[in-house]
């Protein structure tokens, strides 16, 4: 059994889908937090995070410091893997399938092919079917989500605008994905291929989404979540879990804010509880107005 379960061997067919998507299913209703040290990972786990994302700099710092942002150093990832028992995710540059192979060999639980890092390939994403590790990818709209699923992504998250502390882009992307799914219900079968052409998405996937009324993989929110109410807003708009990047460790009181975001994500249906989660927090991370970001500074524009 052990040799058939080793890293580097692709999973194929239905088994691949159920096992990769299976872990995404287990993360539903949870919060995935960006962390840069084992100490932060422990804080995240203690606060109730369902998983952590290991990286060298949070998006707000990548944005500020500039330069090429790459996969996290192995030592940092290993340190984080040793410090927590919840799943550990890590990011690779768009199209950088060798970074992805490295993370797979390291036994990382989920690979994020992420626009937050500097793209390695401006035309192609990783062909994710060839991997044993599941992948999560960002999307701004339904077409982009379906292109990534077509390449083998087992989880979709909104891109939002990472490191901005501004929820507006995540809301835009969630509205587009969820609205796009709802609009498919109004189409007759012979209209699906034309919609697929407009979406630049595989026809079979568009048909599948039209039939089931949802993506075939879990749909999470990311990019700009800074407060408990931001997390609750994303859940109300149809996200099934949330990623919080800079929002926790760029705030004034990370442990309390981490607990508060977890609480609001669990109880997003109950305004009283989101109120309780919002009470007594120190200052949130500083935010950025979208109008002040030039096109080339917008991370969401990376990938297609």
């Amino acid at each position: 059994m052990s040799e058939t379960r080793s890293a580097g061997q692709a999973r194929t067919g239905a088994e691949a889908f159920e096992i990769k998507v299976g872990l995404a299913e287990m993360l539903k209703g949870g919060v995935i937090m960006d962390v840069t040290t084992p100490e932060q990972a422990k804080i995240a786990e203690d606060a109730g995070a369902a998983a952590v994302m290991a990286l060298e700099r949070v998006p707000a710092d990548i944005r500020k410091e500039g330069g090429v942002a790459r996969m996290c150093s192995i030592e940092v990832i290993e340190g984080i893997q040793k410090s927590v028992s919840i799943p550990v995710m890590a990011k690779v540059r768009i199209g950088h399938f060798q970074e992805a192979r490295v993370l797979e060999a390291l036994g990382v639980d989920f690979v994020d092919e992420s626009e937050v890092l500097t793209p390695a390939d401006e035309a192609h994403h990783v062909w994710k079917h060839d991997f044993r590790s599941p992948f999560v990818c960002g999307a701004r709209n339904l077409g982009e989500a379906l292109r990534r699923i077509g390449e083998g992504a087992a989880m979709i998250r909104t891109k939002g605008e990472a490191g901005s502390g501004n929820i507006v882009e995540a809301v835009r992307h969630l509205r587009d994905v969820m609205g796009g799914i709802r609009s498919l219900a109004a189409l007759s079968p012979d209209e699906i291929p034309t919609r697929a052409k407009e979406l630049l998405a595989p026809v079979a996937l568009v048909q599948a989404v039209a039939e089931r009324g949802s993506l075939p993989v879990p749909n999470f929110a990311a990019g700009g979540i800074a407060t408990p109410a931001d997390a609750a807003l994303c859940m109300s708009l149809g996200a099934e879990a949330v990623f919080v990047g800079s929002g926790i460790f760029k705030s004034q009181d990370p442990p309390a804010r981490a607990r508060a975001v977890v609480h609001a994500t669990t109880h997003w249906r109950e305004a009283e509880e989101v109120l309780n989660a919002s009470r007594g927090l120190k200052e949130a991370m500083p935010g950025i107005e979208m109008e002040t970001l030039a096109e080339h500074e917008r991370l969401a524009n990376r990938g297609w």
Binding site: G22, M26, P87, F110, R132
Partner: peptide, 28 residues
């Protein structure tokens, strides 16, 4: 069993008769 790379699916080997052929998906 390890991390997600070691997650797997298989049929149960021995099981109660009414559960024959049980397909088991193991995630971490």
């Amino acid at each position: 069993y390890g991390t997600q790379v070691d997650s797997f699916a298989t049929r149960a080997e021995e099981c109660a008769s009414k559960l024959e052929g049980l397909h088991c998906v193991f995630i971490r």
